[in-house]
Design a protein around this nucleic acid. Sequence first.
DNA 1: CCCAAAAAGTTGACTCGTTGCACTTAGTGA
DNA 2: TCACTAAGTGCAACGAGTCAACTTTTTGGG
Lengths: 195, 195
Amino acid sequence: MGRRERKKAATRRSLADAALELFLEHGFDQVSIRDIAEAADVSTTTLFKHFPSKEALLFDLDADVEQALVAAVREREPGTPLLTALRTHMLGTRAVKAEYGEQIAAFERLVNSTPALVEYHRRMWMRHERALTEAIAADTGAPADDPVCAALAHLALEARALAGGAADPEAAVNAAFDLLERGWEAARPDAGRAS
Amino acid sequence: MGRRERKKAATRRSLADAALELFLEHGFDQVSIRDIAEAADVSTTTLFKHFPSKEALLFDLDADVEQALVAAVREREPGTPLLTALRTHMLGTRAVKAEYGEQIAAFERLVNSTPALVEYHRRMWMRHERALTEAIAADTGAPADDPVCAALAHLALEARALAGGAADPEAAVNAAFDLLERGWEAARPDAGRAS
DNA sequence: CCCAAAAAGTTGACTCGTTGCACTTAGTGA
DNA sequence: TCACTAAGTGCAACGAGTCAACTTTTTGGG
């Protein structure tokens, strides 16, 4: 990796870092793009060459975490039912987060207290809908555009948004998956055991 | 109703009309707030006294249509299962719309081709989540904050968003409800028959 | 080794949604 | 009739995001 790409990555990180710090201290809406550019000592145009929007500054690291979802389905333990793997993954990342402690907690508080960020987060999350649909379809031998697989993917992903607004997020996720799991097994009696 | 309120309603309507016309002709993003205010012969400040945002200009009429959803559950034929009523309502309004013909079709095309509008529409729709949750809970005698009822409400409402992006919307709605209905009946064996 | 092309950054002005402020106008109610 | 209030105006501003023209590097090929 040449010097150019290293420098590029450096300014990118310095932007994301400055943004995170300022957002955590003053709140998302109280910090302007100009403030961030100023803090990272670049111009606003440069900032927008690195990040397509103000929101994107925050979810820079989070991007690959989201990819893990599809992997959790595709590369799950053989013999594990699909929905079980999904459910575990959604509950599991939560546990990992809890372990990391205050930093991630503060980040989540920031996101969940800013409507624009909640929405953006949701959008990013939902981008995997198609990939998940295909993973599920492939898994059960259904055609790639099977409506039932699409519905399952969509509704399973929605479980996260549902948890976001609930008093007890874990219970909410479990409730959603209880519903889906039973409905899914009824629809495909073979799906509950191994595939 | 005095003259003042009549005038207020008049400018409001003239704004909404101008907006709809311009949006349909040029597309949402190609029309600025200033254009609309100009066409209705008021200032942009006045426009924002009537509508809280650009998007709101379009969904002025649609607002009460959305309210019908909760009514469809609460005031359904006695003996009809809850989910059946919901499903029918979602498929039914679609049929009504088809009958109205080109105008509504064009409107829907406009909305569905503009990400900002899709999102706004979804938001409006999802505002009924709490009301629906309570209606469902009351219906089955569960506590008002029962997670399963909340999950069902959320996921049922989501069926619309799911349909929006699907090749065959009707099939998508049916697939979602098939899943939910089975899961729901498994969770509450008494819920499938009458209440 | 040098030069041209590509990539990174800068500057400054601009659009667009949205808000705030100070002001006028016109119904309304006593 | 008169004070009050709500609607509307004009203008200036702010913040996000874009655009175009221009200055650096950095890099790769002849």
